[in-house]
């Protein structure tokens, strides 16, 4: 293995580790929300610093490889993809942190009826699955798996699209739940963004593997 290959392998491992951490952050934020576990929410806030540290480290390592090894072809595409995945992943980390903050701010468990009616949990689970699938796709260089998330993102978009009327109906049913409903709506919006970020990540995996640019194309 050449030195460049070792360096690229190290970046890949770091990105995968960051992926696991971000996935864990989202999962813990969900658990904290469902069980109203404020300690777990605080843990998510604390661990966000680690996500940021990963982002800085991966950026720095990629910069060094560009400067020292002048990568080309698939190596170049891998590094470009790694930098963009890194950035998308950091934003997903921020979203997990945001959800944890809502839990602490709201100060009581969310009403199960609102969660069911809005399908927030279905959306949340799908987002976590998409993140896990893209991680496996990146790890195993599997573009079929990467492409599979595009379809899953449509489900997230569907739930997001129905969110306004679902939330409005929850508020109609119980005006006192307005504050809570707005928090749930915000979490739905955040999940929709997670879907978009994961889709971007999948596009980067395809770019790295197949040298195809899927960004800004209507049909994927």
């Amino acid at each position: 293995m050449t030195q460049l290959e070792k360096e690229l392998q190290a970046v890949k491992s770091e990105v995968i580790n960051m992926w696991s951490l971000v996935q864990m952050q989202l999962t813990k934020a969900k658990k904290a929300m469902l069980q109203f576990d404020q300690d777990l929410a605080r843990e998510v806030l604390l661990k966000e610093k680690r996500v940021n540290a990963y982002e800085l480290k991966i950026d720095r390592d990629c910069e060094n490889i560009f400067a020292l090894f002048s990568p080309v072809a698939n190596d170049l595409r891998f590094l470009l993809a790694a930098i963009k995945i890194n950035s998308n992943m950091e934003r997903i980390g921020d979203i997990a942190e945001g959800i944890a903050k809502y839990i602490l701010e709201f100060g009581s468990p969310f009403d199960k009826h609102i969660l069911d009616k809005t399908q927030l949990l279905v959306m949340y689970d799908e987002a976590i699955n998409m993140l896990a699938d893209t991680r496996a796709a990146f790890e195993n260089e599997d573009t079929i798996l990467a492409r599979s998330v595009f379809k899953k993102d449509e489900k997230l978009d569907e739930i997001n699209l129905a969110a306004n009327s679902n939330i409005a109906s929850c508020i109609h049913e119980n005006m006192e739940s307005m504050n809570e409903a707005l928090y749930v709506l915000s979490i739905i919006r955040k999940m929709e963004r997670v879907g978009d970020q994961v889709k971007n990540i999948a596009e980067e995996i395809i770019f790295f593997m197949e040298a195809k640019v899927l960004k800004h194309q209507e049909e994927l």
Partner: peptide, 17 residues
């Protein structure tokens, strides 16, 4: 050639493999 060469031999050469 330097972003997406067609032939594996070219890719291996330019990436030092």
């Amino acid at each position: 050639m330097f972003t997406n060469p067609t032939d594996t031999r070219t890719q291996n050469y330019i990436t030092g493999r």
